[in-house]
C-alpha cells in the first residue's frame, strides 16, 4: 500500500530570543492509508511540532514531507491553505468552533473556503452532522452544546470535505472519561470505514484505542510499536449514527 504520509529526515528549529530550539531532529515516519496512529510523548518532546508539520500549519526547516504523494515541504502559504482544506481534517482539544455560529454553519466552513455551492454545502454539512449523531442539533450554537457535542461538531467539520487524513490534537483533553470514550468510538468507527486517523495525545489510555503508537522524546522517535491489546469501544446500539 502506498503511504499517505511519507516523512524523511524532518528537522524543525525555532529561534526564541537568542536561543535556538531543535524541536524535531531528523524524524522519518511513514503512515499507510487506513492506519490509526497515536503520537505520544511528554510536552517538549516535539509531538506538537510534528502535528503542526503534518497538519501543514507549519513548514519544516529541512527534510521531505509527502502528503498523499504531494511534496508539501516546498509548498507556498496559499498552497498549504488549499492542502489543509482538501486533504486534512482537524480536530482540536478545545474544539475551535466559531462562536455565535450554528453547528451546521461551522461544519459548512471548510466547504465555503473550498468553493462548494451553497445548496450542496448545506446538504453535505447536514449529512456529516447526522453521521456523528447530531442531526437534532443543526442550529445550535457552540455555547448551547455540551463538550462532547461540540467535539462531535468539530469531527463533522473535519470530515465534511472527505480528507485523506483526520488529524486529532488531544481530542479528549477537555472531556470527561465517558465522553472521551464516545469520541474515541467515533474515531474507531471512521477508521474502520477506511479513514486514516492520526491522534496526538499524552494519555496512554487514549492512545490504546489506536492501532499503532509512535513515541517522541527530545525531537526524535524513540519507539514505533503496534498496539497489542487494542481497546475497542462497543458500538452496539449506535451503529445507526455512523455511516
Amino acid at each position: 500500500m502506498k503511504p499517505v504520509i511519507q516523512i524523511e529526515e524532518l528537522r524543525k528549529q525555532y529561534v526564541i530570543g537568542d536561543q535556538e530550539i531543535y524541536a524535531l531532529r531528523g524524524v522519518s515516519l511513514s503512515i499507510e492509508v487506513g492506519d490509526f496512529v497515536a503520537i505520544m510523548g511528554p510536552s517538549g518532546s516535539g509531538k506538537s511540532s510534528m502535528m503542526n508539520v503534518i497538519g501543514c500549519l507549519d513548514k519544516p526547516t529541512s527534510g521531505e514531507f509527502f502528503l498523499d504523494g504531494y511534496p508539501v515541504s516546498q509548498a507556498h502559504d496559499d498552497e498549504l491553505a488549499v492542502i489543509r482544506n482538501q486533504k486534512i481534517g482537524f480536530v482540536f482539544q478545545n474544539f475551535n468552533l466559531l462562536p455565535r455560529t450554528t453547528a451546521v454553519e461551522n461544519v459548512e466552513l471548510p466547504l465555503l473556503y473550498g468553493g462548494t455551492p451553497a445548496r450542496e454545502r448545506r446538504e453535505k454539512a447536514i449529512r456529516a452532522l447526522t453521521s456523528v449523531g447530531l442531526a437534532e442539533r443543526l442550529n445550535n450554537k457552540p455555547n448551547e452544546l455540551s463538550g462532547g457535542q461540540q467535539q462531535r461538531v468539530s469531527i463533522a467539520r473535519a470530515l465534511v470535505n472527505d480528507p485523506v487524513i483526520l488529524l486529532a490534537d488531544e481530542p479528549t483533553g477537555a472531556l470527561d472519561t465517558k465522553t472521551s470514550e464516545e469520541i474515541m468510538g467515533i474515531f474507531q468507527k471512521l477508521n474502520d470505514a477506511g479513514k486514516t486517523v492520526i491522534l496526538v495525545t499524552h494519555e496512554p489510555d487514549i492512545a490504546e484505542y489506536a492501532k499503532r503508537i509512535v513515541r517522541f522524546r527530545d525531537g526524535q522517535i524513540i519507539a514505533d510499536e503496534v498496539v497489542e491489546d487494542r481497546r475497542r469501544v462497543s458500538m452496539e446500539g449506535r451503529a445507526d449514527e455512523l455511516s
Binding site: 500549519l57 502559504d77 491553505a81 488549499v82 482537524f90 475551535n96 466552513l109 471548510p110 473550498g114
Partner: peptide, 16 residues
C-alpha cells in the same frame, strides 16, 4: 485572532 486561526486551519487563504 483565534477565529482567524480556525479559518486558516480549515483552508482560508490570505486573500479570504
Amino acid at each position: 485572532t483565534r477565529e482567524i486561526g480556525i479559518r486558516k486551519a480549515i483552508g482560508a487563504k490570505r486573500g479570504d
